[in-house]
Design a protein around this nucleic acid. Sequence first.
RNA 1: GCCGGUGUAGCUCAGAUGGUAGAGCAGCUGACUUGUAAUCAGCAGGUCGGGGGUUCGAUUCCCUUCGCCGGCUCCA
Length: 646
Amino acid sequence: MCVCAWISLSRAVFVFPFFISFRKRTLSGAYFTAGSYSMNNSSVATAEKKETALYRMRHSLSHLLAAAVLEIRPDAKLAFGLPVENGFYYDFDFGDTPIGEADLTDIENRMNALIKKRIPFVRSEMPLDEALAHLEKGGEVYKMEYARELEEKGFAENGNISFYTMGDFIDMCEGPHLEHTGEVPKKSFKLDRISGSYWRGDETRPMLTRIYGLAFESGAELKEYLEMRKRAMERDHRKLGDELDLFIQDPEVGVGLPLWMPNGTIIRDELEKWARETEFLGGYQRVSTPSVTRKELYIRSGHVPYYEDSMYPSMPVDEHDDYYLRPMCCPHHHKIYASRLRSYRELPVRLCEYGDVFRYEKHGSLSGLLRVRAMCMNDAHIYCTPEQVEEEFRAVIDMYLMYYGHLRMGNFRVRLSLHDKSSDKFVDNYEEWERTEAIVRNVLDNLGVTYEEESGEAAFYGPKVDIQVKNLMGREETVSTCQLDFVMPERFDLTYVDAQGEKQRPFILHRAPLSTHERMISFLIELYGGAFPTWMAPEQVRLVPVNDEVMPYAQELEEKLRNAFVRAEIDTSSESFNKKIRNAITRKIPNIWILGKQEQESGSVTWRRYAVKEQQSVSFDRALEALETLRDKRMMDNFADVDLPL
RNA sequence: GCCGGUGUAGCUCAGAUGGUAGAGCAGCUGACUUGUAAUCAGCAGGUCGGGGGUUCGAUUCCCUUCGCCGGCUCCA
């Protein structure tokens, strides 16, 4: 089976030629993005950016914000204020009297007044006890906590804590800052929104009020960013999902439980079909397993207790049995593997399933299709020998890159997600963590993939490689994941018999390259702006007759298309011709075939694509053939650089 | 779950400092039969998210609850 898989994978390369060129780009370490900006304003700027002028300006603006806030709310306590990707923020504790968005204009005006005064930023240092005394005088409990921590961890410079003074405002801060407030360019910043934020990001600590501001090097750039953000809203998958009848959500069904409309279901089906073919070529075997399962299984797997918080509460079925909606398919697949004795000769065993899974996400984190409570996952588990792990992992990553390349999802980064010793979210087995993390790191290094390591991001049962994608709003989510599991083989007593007749433990890879339908399609909708390639499009061809005279011709073609399994519709409305064209375009249908007297007489169609302006007249037979090629080769004809295969 | 915002016809939005609401698009009907992004006319659509309170009277004020949006936490 192993040899067979090799052949299959090289065939996969042949079938999807884009794979090779994409791989090269990735191997060179390029991190290419679709847009010039990301809209994320939550991630903290990295260390190497600290020296830039923009960083200093944003950092100084956060001080200006704090100073202005203290003018109207002298009792507010300061927490952290930092530069972020598109601006800055500052966290405050306003006690029992919250601040609202109506206050932002006032604060912004006060900041501008401070800017006009060209107040210098002056750095000073104090020993810890002096610093604490100073902070205590101002009631700055958060800063005091942090000052003590800096001292304990030895981060205080020469045992001193640094402060920056700007006029009457003094803040414990490591800098760097502008020389003076006047260096902030005119109209280059804007207070954006207010949100909550836990102190130190810990939900057991106080909820603070965070004020976000946008800031750029010039007023023009700020304006450009705001316009870009407005344009991006037009591509929001929730808006397009509604307009294109892809999916709905209904409070009576339940939040986070999307209902896929006929159009959206076609997109799911097409992805699923592609996955089936790819997995067949990759030597996978399909299985089907149930969505509800006894608690016992999840105790064995460790989902209870490690994952219980993210699961729907259990259902008591009778006095002895509790059932759960499954949050993952893995335990079921493990049971299939364990159902009989396995020989090393049949490894790797690759079991795949597009499986429905259910996770009880916190209400506030739900968002369109991006974060839901019921989802369908492109799941699979690969059971292999230790010797096969690297090769299998490599094949999985290759499959990811093929999918991403083909779908033109370029805006991603690879994250090596490691455990965190200080957290109880992970299975306690230091040696195995070290060992498996080294294996995964090695695979990535050998592939030449550029990646970033992050601890505390692993699955509870092992390290993983995640593909992180940012959506339009700059929200980054894990789309695909590949996990190396050293825990479940033990828990499920999974074995295989080796060449010596000895029982051995296999490794398990968990992988989901196409993510869940929900998350993957939410990204695709936004990436394509709702304009899908012919192979995925709910309606592949819109037949537009110029007048009723050609309706019989249109009906003849529609029937031929239907018999060729093409999703085509005739526009039979009594609208004007212009309106029919417009309707087809606003529905983002990839192909419009115009039928008039000329076309009828010559047995042809005039082909107008969504992606390109130029149109051409071709015989129906040729057009159908080209359409089938578009479909069967899954060509990305929603991009203008893809020509019709005529 | 927490913080801030928001909720008027299927969609996008008007509106009145408390006297039960309008437009465009979509829908339906009719006329028009059109060659590349909106033909014309008519009709129909809402107990102004739900519940409670204040009031002679609430969509408008207050409370509460639900949904949605942006964050935080969490995560595919």
